[in-house]
Nucleic acid binder design. Sequence first.
DNA 1: TGCATAAACGGAGGCTGCCTCCGCTTGGCG
DNA 2: CGCCAAGCGGAGGCAGCCTCCGTTTATGCA
Lengths: 208, 208
Amino acid sequence: MSCKGENASAGPAESAAVGTVPPERPMRADARRNREALIATAGAAFAADGVSASLEEIARRAGVGIGTLYRHFPTREDLVEAVYRREVEELCAAADRLLAEHPADRALELWLQRFIDYAATKRGLIEGLRVIFAAGTGRLSDISGRISGALERLIRAAREAGLIRTDLGTEDVLHALTAIHAAPQGPDWRDRSLRLVQLVMDGLRCRA
Amino acid sequence: MSCKGENASAGPAESAAVGTVPPERPMRADARRNREALIATAGAAFAADGVSASLEEIARRAGVGIGTLYRHFPTREDLVEAVYRREVEELCAAADRLLAEHPADRALELWLQRFIDYAATKRGLIEGLRVIFAAGTGRLSDISGRISGALERLIRAAREAGLIRTDLGTEDVLHALTAIHAAPQGPDWRDRSLRLVQLVMDGLRCRA
DNA sequence: TGCATAAACGGAGGCTGCCTCCGCTTGGCG
DNA sequence: CGCCAAGCGGAGGCAGCCTCCGTTTATGCA
């Protein structure tokens, strides 16, 4: 309901923000601290026990009362979304870091691998990916855009450096990722997915 | 713990009979009746509220005690599996009925449409489909085989009648079904899926 | 037909998790 | 430094999970 807590990650020098409203009020220091602790703890708990992990346990481990958890995140979905959003942001930040430290094609490759690893442990991301194609279905649309934005930056850089072919675009790679996720999840899921990513990369580089 | 009531789904390699009827002992009449009522009620409840519907509510609606539910189905998964197995059996039975009442290609088309409708309401089936490709991962393998068996019967009949091309097989159609399911689930999911099924059928008939 | 008995029933009870409500604490401003 | 709203936290009510065990009943046998 009252998703006023939306003002998280209010970048001070951020120009042309991605739609988040300007912070009506800076959060009190203790509130921000508790919020951070909750998101971090919840991330670990969801990864370990799935998204139905006990909220009371999360609050306890984060060192706050259950009431505090519910004030920050009125529903379980709100908490899941916050965790999800944070992870996506980290993933996107990694794209820029990789670009700075490696040749663009290598950066793309490493990022795709990292994407697989994220998805391997956080099943939620997979569902999220599926949403990317469903045109902006509400609140998650900006997150989806963030992912394809990162991917696009990587691909454009690799293209401009002449390291990958230019007749395949962001959508094609996204599509491939979705297909990889659709594969059955067995014990060798990760290896198989990484191999497929390798295959895609080889294909992309092959007529550079 | 003393799950001796397991005789319904013990699933060891019994003789290749269609129904897994263990030779142990015929169930007492009231036990069988309650079991049936539970499966039927659970099917409705899962369809309405998802697989996390209240088990106590299911028991109440089925007119049995909660203890009875737990004796028949020690875990929630056992109940889900029983419902799932029943629905798959109905679906497969429909294949033969359709074959008897329609030309083989039309039967195949109708069955695929019916499959979509099943999957539309029972999200569990979708997960099940995904398991088909994961080679016999335990207890669900025979169910998976049942589905592809039905599909294969339909396709073979249509082929022998010269109604569909012969260069595409069961696996290809199964693969297409999986892809259709992988699509994002919006409000128009059903229509879109049915259109895709139509597309597949047109393709199958086009060079008969 | 009647009886013995194993099979099946059912719900009370203990436990855990969900979520709300409200009195107490404290960060931050004037 | 003192005020006070923003923020905290946990008690409590409710619902669902699952077990345990006393009671009921279907069925095989005489």
